[in-house]
Write a protein that binds this DNA or RNA. Structure first.
Ligand SMILES: [Mg+2]
Ligand SMILES: [Mg+2]
Lengths: 441, 441
DNA sequence: GCCTTTAAACAATACA
DNA sequence: TTGTATTGTTTAAAGG
């Protein structure tokens, strides 16, 4: 932190605590050593959003990446979130934010052998390093707007994307609804025509919500600037010239991650867990299918995070990763491959290497993706990771196409709403059959 | 259910699991299916949390205990979770909740020889019987009442906690306030005369709830009581006089478990993961260190769960357990010992027996805990289980005191961080060095 | 409405 | 198989 992470809410020790004390009445002096930031500390002694805290945590280290535990630690040390040892809800919140805020990308562990077997490394997205982050909510599905359409490059393409965005992983606190849906499907073989269902559902929720809170609009004042602006880049943004990403033409690609080979990375869009849930509840292995991908290569600036296509998470392809030249973040669908590389299980590694070779040579990302999937699937170690492992007919036999081609999207689209699924029972395979290649599906 | 499990959300219409069906008939607790109670069914159709369902299941039987299968069965019969026979994810959730929610304790089978061989008996924690349970997500550590104040050994410790507690979360809208309220209530409840009237507790909650949601009251109606209170004790609370625990001086000790030998049981506190997280995040292997132990013997009333020391999970020590005289519940840290006894691994049992001998003789808990840890640690079987295994310096060489004593904290902190380990990455240790104890601080 | 926190479900591992 | 712990993804409730 010396240089970075100046934003730590609690300053070096318990200043935050102190403030709190004040608020609380009892004020145990604690002689505050930090006078400078008292001003804003008071304003956000502790209500700094988690996303922000995470941001600060990540900014506090040179490579802007940490594993979950470190993030916990940072927060525990620099905020009062973790004060009650019995209450671990804050960790849930941290995870929530990491998952949901596009500014945080996960990348596989470089070397597996170690001990970091589990989980990923959470890295700040390059654009976030420069511009700060945005509220987590922003990255959430843009609901309400009922697939309004609007952007419609491909007449239906744009639409599809919007939809995906909105719907992606609708799940819910209620798996119940999903489950319910499943039941319904089973019982009366989805007697309804398709679609509409989800909408009405959503609409209802929304409505309820709104009405409930309708009266309380006055408060917005609280933290005005912060509200709509991305979290203040200036204050928290990386000290101007950061080694890693700054200046780079391709800012999104950090050195070390930017493919030693200089090749563009493959980016796939994070579809989340939606896939597995699409209708089946699970299919364990496939937490996250590739659900999108406007472009296989990412050469544009950070703008990508607000284009309708959605934000992109990077994916490290097996071999590439292990060689240090791979791309970056990746989302669950790619997890298998990432892990394969990361853990470096001999056979898998070998296989992966072989499979990814083409990628290194500059194959289009799509292909690479396909290879990636193929390489990993069935390796055994990754077992549950791949959709195919358990999803029934789903396999990585081709390209888990994630991108432009309507094929991919449509497929995804289709799969997303559990309501949409025709597949009662589980006609999973056939369903996707025509999609061919589809999904990760 | 007349008296018990009146909350069953679903009728027993379903009949999917054949496996369960078989048992169903024989099961004494199931014969009288719920005939009515439709009334409250409406109130919590299906989104009842698993923890709650389990709670209901356990409350539905006199002794408040069941084996996993029975719990599955109960849920299958009384909810719609198991409607899709193909989908067994719910069982996973059930196990997860049993494991992670402090309200559920596992106790070894009385007669090992029988058929019960596998697994444990899951029993509702006495405090849960009275006060309901807490969400699994929030509390890993066991306790229905967070180390209340009362004995604030360390003058400032208790205070800090109170403050922190309230503070934590804060920003988050209702949840925070809800939590704060709950905590306050709980604390008060507890430290107050043992009014053990869950009702007042509940009533207060209710009230608060109402006021808080004043404007949005229409919505709040939905499931009023459930909203802000720990899972509603009253409705689900045990029918007044329950065989097992009622009246007993030592309610925490159920018949059959209360040491046939008449010896007091050893209770160690479940530190859950909280300890680990306090500053470091984890310390993998040691899921649950003994984080506290105000007293080694538990002869007091249920109050023990609210002493500042925190709640205690029971630990079965090797020899004791195998002899049928062992104590009761145990948490992961103690798992090794429990298993040793239960499974009767020769060498381990021997070792454990030796180690626990002192305990049986009445050593202070601290010692006992230490012994236990020592005995188990390094056994190999438990491998990662103990802190020492992976936490680096963390060991059960003493009392990993988690609470008041600052000393304890230090200990935990030190060992917990994985950073301590090899990866210097982040001068973690020193960091805490000066913090001393405080952590999280 | 947007944003945040929190709850919680569901997943998938990893271990034991 | 059962149990425990952790990490991740996603919805949703509630409140400012
Ligand atoms: Mg993310
Ligand atoms: Mg438990």
């Amino acid at each position: 932190m010396g240089q970075n992470q100046s934003g730590s809410p609690l300053e070096q020790n318990w200043s935050g605590y102190e403030e709190f004390m004040k608020e609380m009445n009892a004020s145990p002096s604690t002689e505050q050593q930090n006078q400078l930031d008292d001003s804003d500390q008071a304003s956000q002694p502790d209500d700094t959003p988690y996303a922000q805290l995470i941001y600060q945590a990540l900014m506090s280290v040179d490579d802007h990446q940490m594993i979950l535990r470190d993030i916990y630690k940072w927060i525990a040390e620099n905020t009062d979130k973790a004060i009650d040892p019995e209450f671990t809800g804050w960790q849930n919140s941290v995870r929530h934010n990491l998952s949901m805020n596009a500014a945080f990308n996960k990348i596989p562990h470089a070397h597996p052998g170690d001990k970091a077997k589990k989980g990923f490394i959470w890295a700040l997205d390059p654009s976030a390093i420069r511009n700060g982050i945005q509220p987590t909510t922003r990255y959430r599905a843009k609901k309400d707007d009922p697939k309004s359409s609007s952007s419609g490059s491909k007449p239906n393409k744009g639409r599809v994307q919007d939809i995906l965005r909105q719907r992606s992983g609708r799940r819910g606190g209620q798996a119940a609804s999903r489950r319910a849906a499943r039941e319904v499907l089973q019982r009366h073989d989805r007697e309804r025509e398709r679609g509409r269902d989800a909408h009405s559902h959503r609409a209802r929720h929304h409505k309820r919500n709104t009405s409930a809170t309708s009266t309380a609009s006055s408060v917005a004042e609280a933290s005005p600037s912060v509200l709509n602006a991305p979290y203040p880049p200036p204050p928290f943004a990386a000290p101007a010239p950061l080694s890693a990403f700054e200046d780079s033409e391709r800012e999104d690609v950090g050195p070390g991650y930017s493919g030693a080979n200089g090749l563009p990375e493959l980016w796939i869009r994070s579809g989340g867990y939606g896939g597995g849930f699409r209708g089946f509840g699970m299919g364990s292995g496939m937490s996250t299918p590739v659900t999108s991908g406007d472009e296989g290569f990412r050469t544009d600036d950070e703008e990508d995070d607000d284009e309708e296509g959605g934000y992109f998470g990077g994916a490290v392809l097996g071999g590439a990763s292990s060689s240090g030249g791979g791309a970056l973040v990746h989302t669950s669908a790619a997890t298998a491959a990432a892990h394969a590389a990361a853990h470096n299980a001999a056979h898998i590694a070998a296989h992966t290497a072989a499979m990814t070779a083409p990628f290194r040579m500059g194959l289009p990302s799509m292909s690479a993706a396909g290879v990636m999937g193929a390489g990993v699937d069935g390796e055994g170690d990754m077992g549950g990771y791949l959709a195919g492992e358990e999803g029934g007919g789903v396999e990585f036999n081709g390209l888990p196409r994630a991108g432009e081609e309507s094929g991919g999207w449509e497929f995804v689209e289709e799969g997303f709403g559990y309501e949409d699924q025709e597949h009662e029972g589980m006609g999973f395979e056939q369903k996707f059959e025509d999609d061919e290649g589809g999904f990760l599906g």
